[in-house]
Design a protein around this nucleic acid. Structure first.
Lengths: 124, 124
DNA sequence: ACTTATAATCGTAAATCTACGATATTAAAA
DNA sequence: TTTTAATATCGTAGATTTACGATTATAAGT
């Protein structure tokens, strides 16, 4: 039996602070988390550079076990950054370019805004 | 019971896979991790927008305890994204714009490269 | 039908992250 | 000197992440 979260209400609240932030910040943070492990960045690179959608070639390229790669793929899929479809005995992933654009926009917006502010008011 | 994994050293290795990736990917991933919590993004926003360097005003703005904010600040500082100096009884933080530029470049490079590849070879 | 190949999922362990309250620390104010 | 205010740090608990091997599921090949 998994998912046996006993969490009294107090406990649950204490560790769910993310909901206190704006949805956009949270979305940005989630995308950032996707990029927060080199394996996932590498996966995105591989998926982008191959003409055809790749499946277990990713495993061959990464220094990780098959199950670990599979888990990273699952994470990326749940975020929506990649899509996967089964093709016979192998499954084929590719980047969801809509989600990718969303991510790119969020990052560029943040970094651009900060940069702008920074050049305007230098403090340190 | 089942597999007694011995090898302390092997166990240690097992969880340090990041070193198997390129330093640049790891650096990028570290910056991404900095942005992977809305609180830290919010902190960067506050630091950028204020004319003077801020200290505990951040605590006032965030829905987190003082000690928690302090820890996020420490994380950002250890990454090098922000600098902090003590001014009397309060301590004053600001963004390290060199590190920020490095981060911005890494992100733009990644996102730009992927985007380029994506428009060239659409697969799904 | 049997075997093989591919990939997802399960179970687990260690590490890290998030969060808080409590406790220092330290400079300024009284 | 004593008190206050601002922060950093410590200890800790619970959640999540990372990683692996083992197992399962399924399609394809023999």
């Amino acid at each position: 039996m998994k998912n046996n979260r006993k969490a009294t209400i107090l406990n649950a609240m204490a560790l769910n602070k993310k909901t206190q932030f704006s949805p956009l910040e949270v979305r940005l943070a989630d995308f950032a988390k996707a990029l927060s492990h080199p394996a996932r960045v590498a996966i995105l690179r591989v998926l982008a550079e191959r003409q055809t959608c790749v499946c277990g070639e990713i495993v061959a390229v990464l220094p990780l076990a098959q199950s670990t790669v599979s888990q990273h793929l699952k994470d990326l899929k749940e975020l929506g950054l990649i899509k996967g479809e089964i093709d016979g005995t192998r499954s084929c992933y590719c980047i969801d370019w809509n989600a990718f654009q969303e991510m790119k926009n969020l990052f560029q917006n943040l970094l651009g805004t900060l940069d702008e502010m920074g050049t305007k008011n230098g403090c340190c």
